[in-house]
């Protein structure tokens, strides 16, 4: 890990949001917790656990989060009874993938899903012995695994190297979510420009806190908004197809998937940026 000095800001944020969450629960439906705060609450918990207790505990919390997201995704897509072995295999790949992160075997982690899992999923789907719809089912399972296991795994690696970078990524995602929602009627260039300014400032101002050189902060200030915009656009279209409606989100009907749409594209690219350009980590 690269952050030697414990950070108090994130646990304080978690404590404040927990109090707010408690008051929402006590209000019996009169108040609602905004979806952006939901994401901050979960990740402030995970990052705090990683910082003060153990990275491994945080890792398995993230694995549980990935399981919930994958479960919600599979609940929303039209699956066949013959896909059960493929879906079971997809669920079983979660502990396997997170165990690879646990033992820091990055080489196998990064190829497990694109190579071995993508070869085995069609086999397990085909084992259902119903030909019609096999391509759709395989695509659906592969899609779920890629986004909700592999991309989530990258968040775990990001937290392992620097909780502060992970926190910055979540902050950037939340800012993007708010800006994209507020300026929904503005042209893309204006929204992107505002995001570049806001997130660029965030990264540059926190340069000494996060330990990233200022010129990389400027580069990330351009890259992260682009990725969040791409993720927002892509996953919004996918959510439309899944029948998720932002105005009536419910647990199990897209609330978790919707809240994650801004970080799924950002996490892997950001991790690889830091790994290749800043040479973070000595993982194999």
């Amino acid at each position: 890990m690269l952050d030697p000095v414990p950070e108090f800001l994130i646990p304080c944020l978690f404590a404040g949001l927990s109090l707010f969450r408690l008051s929402v629960w006590l209000s019996r439906g009169r108040w609602q917790m905004p979806e952006a705060l939901q994401l901050i609450w979960i990740f402030s918990l995970i990052i705090s656990v990683a910082e003060y207790l153990s990275f491994h505990w945080a890792l398995w919390m993230l694995a549980l989060y990935a399981f919930f997201a994958l479960r919600e995704f599979f609940s929303l897509v039209d699956i066949r009874i013959e896909d059960r072995f493929g879906i079971l295999f997809a669920y079983l790949s979660i502990p396997f993938m997170f165990y690879l992160i646990h033992i820091l075997w990055y080489g196998l982690f990064i190829i497990s899903i694109p190579v071995y899992t993508y070869l085995l999923v069609p086999f397990f789907v085909a084992a259902g012995r119903k030909t019609e719809g096999i391509v759709f089912s395989t695509g659906v399972i592969d899609f779920g695994l890629f986004f909700y296991v592999l991309c989530m795994g990258h968040i775990a690696y990001l937290i392992y190297f620097s909780e502060r970078m992970a926190a910055l990524m979540i902050a950037a995602a939340v800012i993007s979510g708010v800006v994209l929602k507020v300026l929904i009627r503005r042209p893309f260039v204006i929204r992107y420009g505002i995001l570049v300014v806001l997130i660029g400032c965030l990264y540059v101002l926190s340069s000494s806190w996060s330990g990233i050189p200022w010129y990389h902060c400027i580069a990330l200030g351009g890259l992260v908004p682009l990725l969040t915009c791409v993720g927002h656009f892509t996953l919004n279209k996918i959510e439309d197809d899944l029948g998720i409606r932002a105005d009536r989100l419910q647990p199990g009907r897209g609330r978790m998937i919707h809240s994650m749409r801004l970080i799924l594209f950002t996490a892997p690219v950001m991790f690889h940026y830091l790994r290749w350009f800043l040479h973070w980590g000595d993982i194999q």
């Binding site: 399981f67 479960r71 599979f74 699956i79 009874i81 059960r84 079971l88 669920y91 199990g252």
Partner: peptide, 20 residues
């Protein structure tokens, strides 16, 4: 809504899926 997909008739085992 959901049990007919989590553990339908003739399914060999239940699958974790959201239920309502």
């Amino acid at each position: 809504e959901g049990p007919e997909r989590s553990f339908p008739k003739k399914a060999p085992f239940p699958l974790p899926l959201c239920n309502h």
